[in-house]
Write a protein that binds this DNA or RNA. Sequence first.
DNA 1: GATATACTCAACCATATGGTTGATAATGGA
DNA 2: TCCATTATCAACCATATGGTTGAGTATATC
Lengths: 110, 110
Amino acid sequence: MVDNGRQLDSVFRALGDPTRLRMIEQLAQGERTVSDLAAPLDMTLAGASKHVGVLEQAGLLTREKRGRERICALNQESLFAARDWVERYSAFWSQRLDALDQALKEDGDD
Amino acid sequence: MVDNGRQLDSVFRALGDPTRLRMIEQLAQGERTVSDLAAPLDMTLAGASKHVGVLEQAGLLTREKRGRERICALNQESLFAARDWVERYSAFWSQRLDALDQALKEDGDD
DNA sequence: GATATACTCAACCATATGGTTGATAATGGA
DNA sequence: TCCATTATCAACCATATGGTTGAGTATATC
């Protein structure tokens, strides 16, 4: 088991760009070539390719050569790692709010 | 209902830095002053303050002046927005994998 | 009032990032 | 074989980012 723990920030950084978010949304619906991903974007193919590279680097997708195309596919693991982190820390916070709530309720309970 | 939808990327970008991830982890345990957040970091207070600003800008925390201190507290909403997005698109992808699985199974089912 | 504390702001610097163009490689189809 | 398609690479540019220092503003404490 790899320690994904401390490159989570690179996953979030990769998601921190509207162009790349769109790419992920595309890929959630199935495999896409780099050209497919580039098509809806107002950008050169080379530019789009660089974005794909960032997502690949962060482990969010895989790129497989098939003929002269490169087929991109989502890689769940990184997405799940991000989800787990966010869930964990928003949950912590929720618990604290609940506890605070409880304390206030009991305090005003005379 | 505000359209948070299209500044999600700023939330992810804010999370895309290890220093700021640590800050969020701190804040998940309760309110903290800017100095509290800065203490464990190898960085000037001014530097830490800028990071807090980024998180505030992205809506991930609120900063409230109390005496000469600024009390920082997590703001669930942005965190939840991030969680929801990630959950949604990783789920889409899972469904596709399941469907593919099913199709393959049925195909080889003679 | 004088001084220390907590923090922000502005200016600055080095590096990273998002984009372009032009060249190149590899594959597919006429 | 010849050309078009798909994609990457390298070089370049402008702007954003992460950090610093030095100064300034409130607030607390002596």
